[in-house]
């Protein structure tokens, strides 16, 4: 993902669909590919609304919290216009 940010595929304002493994919706609907979305804001920061508005770094997406990783970016979106 870092390289696609550098390449410009993920630019500020890009929405990324992520699989959030702790999500109840994800557990109830295992067929759903992803149930959470995050927004790339620039400066290597991502903003999202997960139990309140939060900002996370790219490292936090890939690192595991308490020995368990919960966020898996899957799809990068662009507006249709």
């Amino acid at each position: 993902m870092a390289s696609s940010i550098k390449a410009g595929t993920i630019s500020p304002g890009t929405v990324i669909g992520t699989r959030y493994t702790d999500s109840q919706i994800q557990r109830d609907n295992p067929r759903l590919e992803f149930t959470h979305v995050i927004l790339y804001a620039g400066n290597g920061e991502f903003w999202h609304n997960l139990h309140g508005l939060k900002k996370i770094s790219i490292g936090e997406i890939y690192s595991s919290k308490d020995g368990k990783r919960t966020l898996y970016p899957l799809v990068v979106f662009a507006p249709k216009k």
């Binding site: 890009t14 669909g17 992803f34 149930t35 979305v37 799809v75 990068v76 979106f77 662009a78 507006p79």
Partner: peptide
Amino acid sequence: AWFLPEENKVVL
């Protein structure tokens, strides 16, 4: 979130 691929362009 799961309706976004239908309504928007999937880049990656």
